[in-house]
Design a protein around this nucleic acid. Sequence first.
RNA 1: GCGCCCGUAGCUCAACUGGAUAGAGCUCCUGACUUCGAAUCAGGCGGUUACAGGUUCAAAUCCUGUCGGGCGCACCA
Length: 586
Amino acid sequence: MIRHLIEQRLHAAVAAVLPDADLTSVLVRSCEPKFGDYQTNALMSLAKQRKLNPRQLATDVMAKLDVTGLCEPPEIAGAAFINFRLKAEALAGLLQGAARGEHLFFRKAATPRTIVIDFSSPNVAKPMHVGHIRSTILGDALARAFRLLGHRVVTDNHIGDWGTQFGMLLIGWKRELDAPALAADPIGEMERLYKKLSAECKADPAKLEAARAELVKLQRGDAENLAIWREMQRLSQVQFDTIYARLGVKFDVALGESFYNPRLQATVDDLVAKGLARESEGAKAIFSDDSLPPKDDPFKTQRDGEWHANPALVQKNDGGFNYATTDLATLAYRMETWSPDEIIYVTDGRQQLHFRQIFAAFRRWRADAKVRLEHVWFGSILGEDGKPFKTRSGDTVKLADLLDEAEERALKVVTDKNPNLPEGERREIARIVGLGAVKYADLLPNRQTDYVFSWDKLLALQGNTAPYLQYASTRIQSIFRKATEAGVSLDPSAAIRLGAPEELALAKHLLNFGFVLEMVAEECRPNYLCNYLYELAGHFTRFYEACPVLKAAEPERSTRLRLCELAGRVLRQGLDVLGIGTPEQM
RNA sequence: GCGCCCGUAGCUCAACUGGAUAGAGCUCCUGACUUCGAAUCAGGCGGUUACAGGUUCAAAUCCUGUCGGGCGCACCA
């Protein structure tokens, strides 16, 4: 907020000196405290483009620069930095505005966008496992961030409820279903059937053919197969609902792959009619239109020094459809239904080529669509040995087990630290802390790095972790409990006078909340928010160690109570964006 | 073979349009609880940002090449 104000004043000054300058690259950023609170380095590149003396340009801009009311007189430093130091009254004024409930250091987007977010996408008849947590948690955090900033968000769970695996599952269900096992553990039994039949089909072509036949029957609407398929869906949905309820993740819609099944033939027909797709080796595929240089063309690949076609298949030679078809039909449906400004796909990085092809194909298919398509990808999940987790035949860690263990471990710590709390409360705290630890560990690293799965790391409760942030929050709550006991209350009109360096550092950090939220939304990287909140908790804790609150005399006490209250609100709001709760005590 | 991504402290990771002396956590060492919650704080150890060139006032960041690793590349999703 204040950053935007300084930026506006800077833009006015730069425009006065260089009327034709591109102001979009004239930015203000925060900087090291020894230089000030904010700085701009834009004048150096501007001077370079125009072959001006940078220091002279800075001097000229300074002459036109009016930051009265916001900052102390700015300084030129280094090659041609301009350093800004906030005026104490401006800082106090912002805190007072927040105290009156006018803002919480961020502002809503000036032009709200409609954003569809496609994430999680588990498969029917399979257990949700660690492979689903990144997409689910990342997608949910992004949805929350966009919503907080005032955008219209549609979260859509594109469930894997259609496809070749059902041929095998149907055979298994008909021939080898263990009904008591299904009743006791539906997902486990369906998984057993899938694994068994998958292995058998690999070894026996006749069985594979039988599976295909069952699939074709299903796709043609065979009543028995449809009924079984619906039962598998229903049983899976129970599992999804349970997991999402535990995670606190909600979807606006859950239109699985099967929803688009009736549209696939028309999609392919239209692609063929428009000349995007054509027959090739018995299949139908989308080829390059040669509009891009081969290097950037997702429909080309190089072999032995020559460029070859790398088409996207939309119909198999047996007439079946595949995921490119479904994704294009889905894209068309989403455009018709929500007219979004942006569609975000949260999947792992192995699908990069696929989405490049889908996006490129869609651009040609619907040339007038103004939608921004974004593949927000993340790294693979690795075992502790650094090798990828097996998804088909090897053992995977089930998400439900992971959450159970997180809560158990958290309960041990809570019981250790706070044995006097009733068990029910300890369990509720352990639920919030354990779940928060899992989510935070997942959101903290840059999403594009590979994810090394480790119980100890996921559930560590020390250092840069959710429990550290939650602990800071409970200390703040504790102050207010004590304040209430002592009959001290927060006066919204009390003056704010910041003096101690710890008070100033904390107060100034609060101002950056909005900028960080905007960065998270712009780059779809919640780890920026994790780091911001970790720093916030650090600033608060240092303030807490150095500055007594309740024992201080006025006016310090009011100022410090206010700082506690605002820090607590930003901390809780930030954690809420990450989908992480904050207990009163822990 | 081609493409995408990655290589930063012993380990796991940060580093905001290229910005000023590359920062945290874990580990190890030293201190701080009769004072608002020590799941904490203060301090210390630890770096040729894989390597070699280039671009410029300025490079972990951009360009070229080399080495090393992960992933993808026609009917699975």
